[in-house]
Amino acid sequence: MTASVDFDQGAFVRALLDPELPTPNGLEARRGLQPERRFAVYRNNVCVGLVDALAERFPVCRQLVGDEFFRAMARCYVRDLLPRTPMLFDYGNDFADFVSSFEPAREVPYLADVAQLEYAVGQSYHAENAAPLSMDALRALPFDRLAGATAELHPSTHVVASQYPIVSIWRRHMSDDDAAQLELDHGEEALVVRPHLTINVTALPVGGSAFVRALERGEAFGQAVDAASGLTPEFDLTACLQALFLAEAFLAVNVSH
């Protein structure tokens, strides 16, 4: 009998991921059978398991291109980019990037942005809990001193800006509401917040995502307004704040003394 050598798991994994490669040496099925069919069970478990995981994380994307296309695209992603941790709810952080450079998906130009929104929804779901500022607390802020104040946003807050109406697309597919025509002639900026146990997905007025990103960078309200209106002169601060208040996106407002 030969001494046991270390089992080459790297080679095993390479063969799992590439069906063109031969089955690794040293494997046996039951008497008289070749191990290929058995190895295929593991190949299949890995591939289908991860493709299913992406299908669950990106249900609207799946509907947008159909199951067959989505699964074929997801297989390509899985082979290139396996999860880095066993926390599958985190899988797909660069799926939107992959989709945007995936040639066959070109004719669905909003797909990558919807993927980014779906990933944000998942991140928001699992984000840290925190009690947002109530309307009463917001009302009690010293309004005339807020230009220099900074804000802390709820840890579940995400924004995704798109030149396509991604919030409308996403809502329609989440609510089975297929009634009205949806024109693709305008963009939307999605705000995702989970202040309690339910996720809010709303569209911010134009410039809203730049405003939120500036606040997230630690800029004061005054600077954040400049950042937003610098990019979109028609930025409507009141409408933007209203949306953020309703979504309960503020955790704290720090007024300097």
Binding site: S4, Q9, V13, L82, R84
Partner: peptide
């Protein structure tokens, strides 16, 4: 079983040989 190799998670319970090394 094993499920991670080279920092990549395979999401399946993969088999190992049963010998003194393993």
């Amino acid at each position: 079983a094993w499920s991670t190799q080279g920092g990549r998670f395979l999401n399946d319970l993969l088999p190992l040989p049963y010998n003194s090394t393993t």
